[in-house]
Design a protein around this nucleic acid. Structure first.
Lengths: 198, 198
DNA sequence: ACGTAAGTATACAGATCGGTCTACTATCGT
DNA sequence: ACGATAGTAGACCGATCTGTATACTTACGT
């Protein structure tokens, strides 16, 4: 039936297969360098199916990023739900990043890379901004709960650490950047008034 | 003579005009989205001149990034030379970033964006890594001079802040990310054993 | 049983891209 | 005066990219 590497779970809908293939290829090799033909070949799907489902490459990219954002949001929320203190929750965000960065296919933050590849243009930047806004809001809420003296500033500082770690990763020392960021976060939390027992 | 917007100082060599045009266009609009024709039009130069001088688009990109790296290195070194303590010098790196980020044409870190746009591929990533390595070495030397307990870790933390600020800039609040990073750096320096009088 | 919806396979259009090639021109050092 | 050097102008090539159009096939609900 399929002539070349589908590499994506079969017998699901064309939409899901396309999203899975797009996630793999766009993230690993870049959005601009991967053409439509590569995506449909990987998905094992006809070109017409792509354009019937998404309408354009831009919308496929947008759907891919949105899915990635929602997946991260749910994953992090789930992790935080088991923790008691705001301080633990903040540090757990860095733990989550560390785990993700340890996987062998890690290539840095998908949103930062997508933002860099695209001009100001379309709604794709909107998805990236939304992702960043969610992270900042999460940090701010937790900083407030933890009793920080200046939650907004502390949240911004934590965000800088998080994004710095997402950007300055190294293929060899996987996850080490996140650990360094976590250490720095501990320091900033102490200095910002978020105590251990918070 | 020239038919369209040269927008680059005339009567300099074709090489310089090409580098200036490449710097503007590649940085503002992205490397992949700007074609050769746009560059030579902006430079007011013939296409053959580009290929006689640089040989390929890749080498032009490499030359553009190398020039940008050297410019930053010299600018920072000059700024640091007037300062006495290691602590002041470290903070001055963030001050420099803040000044750069305040300029209206700021679009984030050119090296991070270039890295994101390109695959693993060519020597271009090498320039980006060199730029990051230089920054890390600078922080490490200064941390050592300042008497930090763990200079390597402190340097990595500072690097995360720096790159985080370079990535999470916002068009409106220009330079604010660098200020936040500077504040966080002050905290990390104090906690790392680099004292005010150092 | 049959029509509808979803999907397949493939050829093709139009644009753009990086890069080559030819032919011409201006400037400058000796 | 003249040859070397550096540059200009623009046609052109092959590859590739997004997107469209055509014609066929399967699966399923009623």
């Amino acid at each position: 039936m399929t002539t070349k590497t589908p590499a994506v779970p079969e017998k699901t809908s064309a939409r899901e297969r396309l999203l899975a293939a797009a996630a793999e290829l766009f993230y690993m090799e870049g959005i601009n360098t991967v053409g439509i033909d590569r995506v449909i070949e990987r998905a094992g799907v006809a070109k017409a199916s792509l354009y019937n489902t998404f309408g354009s490459k831009d919308e496929l990219i947008q759907a891919y990023l949105t899915a990635k954002h929602e997946a991260r949001e749910q994953r992090v929320q789930k992790r935080l739900s088991g923790l008691a203190s705001a301080r633990e929750k903040i540090l757990a965000v860095f733990d989550d990043q560390c785990e993700v960065a340890r996987k062998k296919d890690f290539r840095g933050c998908a949103f930062i890379r997508a933002s860099a590849e695209l001009g100001a243009e379309n709604g794709i930047r909107g998805v990236c901004d939304a992702s960043r806004g969610w992270l900042r809001g999460l940090f701010k809420d937790l900083a407030t709960q933890g009793g920080a003296r200046d939650p907004a500033t502390l949240a911004r500082q934590l965000e800088l650490l998080y994004e710095g770690a997402a950007v300055s990763w190294q293929p060899d020392a996987a996850g080490s950047a996140s650990k360094v960021a976590r250490e720095a976060a501990v320091c900033l939390l102490a200095s910002g008034g978020v105590r251990t027992s918070g």
